[in-house]
């Protein structure tokens, strides 16, 4: 099947710029960080669209992450001066994941002072740690190979969780965060759809006030 450039555009024939908000716009409008559920959702949705829409793009700013009305999340091209070089080419999947992890963390950290740190739930912190490839610094990435007596399936599961190498790995971890993994596509799409709708509502309200 042919893949469109913007996943959000698949929802309607006439999807325009007003049907998407960048993560940066969302952060600025609320003037506060995203919550943890939104972070899981943006992560899952973004990896979903990255899986379907290649070539890989490194995420340089929250302005590139676009949340669409229908709850899909896509990555806009980097408009920076070096876009077309680092933005598109010679960029591996793990590099894209790393950059996405950093952007998601920054969205969770939005507005906090340099000497402050947000307390994240351990699973989300672990996800970002693994995405951003910062795990070795805290010594917690032991690859899980000490469990030689464990079954192969368990070992394989551990390997998958300890080493993120693909968008699919990220999505699996996001799905595992839910009580019912099979609900991940609908749930995370609904969270992103709500994020878009609530931000639009706030925007309309603030515009009226002005």
């Amino acid at each position: 099947a042919e893949t469109p450039l913007e996943p959000g555009a698949t929802a309607g024939a006439a999807a325009g710029p007003q049907d998407a908000l960048s993560l940066e716009e969302i952060l600025r409008l609320y003037n506060q960080p995203i919550n943890e559920e939104q972070a899981w959702a943006v992560c899952y949705q973004c990896c979903g669209s990255l899986r379907a829409h290649r070539p890989p793009r490194r995420v340089r700013s929250a302005a590139q992450v676009r949340v669409w009305r229908d709850g899909t999340v896509s990555l806009a091209p980097d408009a920076g001066p070096d876009s077309g070089k680092m933005g598109y080419s010679h960029c591996t999947e793990t590099e894209v994941i790393e950059s996405l992890g950093i952007i998601i963390y920054k969205a969770l950290d939005y507005g906090l002072k340099e000497n402050e740190e947000r307390e994240l739930s351990p699973p989300l912190e672990q996800l970002i740690d693994r995405m951003a490839n910062t795990v070795e610094a805290d010594g917690s990435n032991d690859e899980g190979y000490e469990a030689a007596e464990e079954g192969l399936e368990e070992e394989e599961e551990k390997r998958k969780i300890s080493a993120i190498r693909s968008y699919r790995d990220v999505m699996k971890l996001c799905a595992a965060h839910l009580s019912t993994e099979s609900e991940a596509p609908n749930h995370y799409q609904a969270v992103c759809r709500a994020l878009f709708a609530e931000t639009k509502e706030l925007h309309t309200f603030l515009t009226k006030i002005k």
Partner: peptide, 24 residues
């Protein structure tokens, strides 16, 4: 509803914020 509720702690040298900062 819709509010981000989170705890803030002092930034730690070995915390995730420091590790992310080193990457950027």
């Amino acid at each position: 509803k819709g509010k981000s509720l989170y705890k803030i702690k002092p930034r730690h040298d070995s915390g995730i914020k420091a590790k992310i900062s080193m990457k950027t």
